[in-house]
Write a protein that binds this DNA or RNA. Structure first.
Lengths: 223, 223
DNA sequence: ATAATTTTTTAGATTTACCTAAATACATAT
DNA sequence: ATATGTATTTAGGTAAATCTAAAAAATTAT
């Protein structure tokens, strides 16, 4: 079934608000969507009649299983497009959200599954948020310092804590950037330096000092 | 200025119909857009008030310069997305039109200009139709047999006339497919074979017989 | 427990993009 | 030149998604 962009935005907003509060209020939704409470009430009635959510007047709202499924599909699209914009088109991670808000409403499922493959099945978007898979399963992502990354586990760089030019220069030299997929292949006891492996590139090592400033996200047993 | 998807579809349809007939009739538009003549009349009034077209009741319609500019932007987006879907995501050229109809309404100009660069500034879409540049200039495309392609001019493969497995095998072996960018770097008088150059690949030669079955599109002095 | 405040819903409009049915303008054929 | 047929417009209506203002329900404070 296909839903209007407006309905999709409601579903997505409810999904996100539900992470904090079991039940979502009309006012909270109105604020999140920059609209008026009266408009929210109208839309909730429509979405309820489509069985996407449970709603009793004055009692707040909660997505049904079907509603959640749709929310996860939209979030999947949003985050994959963000990844595409940053990794392939060279956008900064601050400027992609708005564009992804539009792209997430493109309907073709085949498109998004092929995009996923084209991007190498990333597990997180450029902000480090997990990307649901084609079945809507959200991978359990752990975000840690590169120093603590277990060996031979693929992870994506999500942030760097030190922004000095000296450090950025070193990162650039090693082709490490936000979004880079890498893994630690060895650790050397002598100086605690790390051997880094990146897809289709020769191995190289980085110092403990550098690694201490890099944060990565990786998939901790999905399901 | 931003226009609704619906308005953009009207503008695009008028642009295409204008290629055949100087002035476009209400009925022709209704047919092209699968809608009713009365709906067309309504919309024409709105678009006229926005100065995107010239319209006098009963006298048909014609885009203004501004209307044409917008049409070309939409066509640019449509064709670049088609190219992306085929070249990067591996879709067949028959199945991309529908998806591109949605993608063409994504508004970010920066997105489309970066996509253009990412794709290597293709001059034609997978169907061989020319892609307007960032200023809306439509390159003059000539479509000819590879045999007749002038030397050292980049061209895109748009079709192959013989579909035998033997020929397709040979094409695959040479990494030639619909959409491949190539140029003829030399011709050998002895057997009329051609030396082919492709970006970031070693040169190779193909027989006159093979070249006779390959059709390409290239830019003939734009402007 | 009642008053005051906040939240939510209802009622009634508006805008966009459609529709059908009827009226009008234009084109063509005799 | 008039009749007939086709194309186009007008008139009036609908559905989706929004809005404001007012009413009603729920919550909080005294």
């Amino acid at each position: 079934m296909k839903y209007s962009s407006s309905k999709e935005n409601y579903i997505k907003a409810i999904f996100h608000l539900q992470q904090d509060e079991e039940v979502v209020s009309t006012n909270a939704l109105a604020k999140a969507l920059s609209t008026r409470p009266a408009s929210v009430t109208d839309m909730l009635k429509k979405l309820k009649s489509q069985k996407l959510l449970q709603y009793q007047p004055y009692k707040g709202v909660k997505l049904t299983a079907e509603g959640k499924k749709i929310a996860l599909q939209i979030i999947r699209k949003h985050r994959l497009w963000e990844y595409f914009l940053v990794e392939k088109l060279g956008f900064g991670w601050e400027e992609v959200h708005e564009i992804a808000e539009e792209l997430e409403h493109i309907s073709s499922k085949k498109l998004i599954d092929r995009l996923d493959i084209f991007l190498g099945n990333p597990k997180t978007d450029p902000h480090g948020d997990p990307i649901p898979d084609s079945q809507g399963r959200m991978p359990l992502i752990r975000q840690i310092c590169l120093l603590e990354l277990p060996e031979n586990i693929q992870a994506d760089v999500i942030s760097v804590s030190n922004q000095s030019t000296a450090m950025l220069e070193l990162l650039r030299h090693n082709h490490i950037a936000i979004g880079t997929r890498l893994e630690v292949s060895r650790r050397f006891a002598f100086d605690h330096s790390l051997e880094i492996r990146m897809p289709s590139q020769p191995f190289f090592t980085i110092s403990e000092q550098l690694a201490a400033n890099i944060y990565v996200a990786f998939e901790a047993e999905s399901k």
